[in-house]
């Protein structure tokens, strides 16, 4: 089973990479972009086929290690 985790800075907290890239996009004339946010994607390959149990376990991993709940939100998706 393959699982994708998307981790993103919480809204309202400083995201220097997003801000800098947003400025670069505007400088290139892409005026329609109103915000740019950076994140991190982690792919896990796991044993078994119980997607519910796997998702719950990955959620525990995110809370304990993979994401910092002080500054980050995460989304888990079974992708294969």
């Amino acid at each position: 089973m393959k699982i994708r985790i998307d981790i993103r800075r919480k809204e309202g907290l400083s995201d220097p990479e997003g801000v800098t890239t947003q400025r670069a996009l505007q400088n290139l004339g892409y005026d329609g972009v109103t915000a740019t946010h950076f994140g991190r994607t982690i792919y896990l390959e796991m044993e078994g086929d119980d997607t519910g149990a796997a998702t719950a376990e990955v959620e525990a991993m995110c809370r304990q290690l993979l994401a910092n709940p002080v500054i980050e939100d995460f989304q888990i998706e079974v992708v294969g």
Binding site: R9, L13, S14, D15, P16, E17, V19, T20, N68, V70, I71
Partner: peptide
């Protein structure tokens, strides 16, 4: 110490990268 939850907040990349 911040990651361990012993201190509040977190440290991220500098404003100007």
């Amino acid at each position: 110490l911040c990651e361990a939850g012993l201190l509040p907040g977190a440290l991220v990349a500098n404003r100007d990268l």
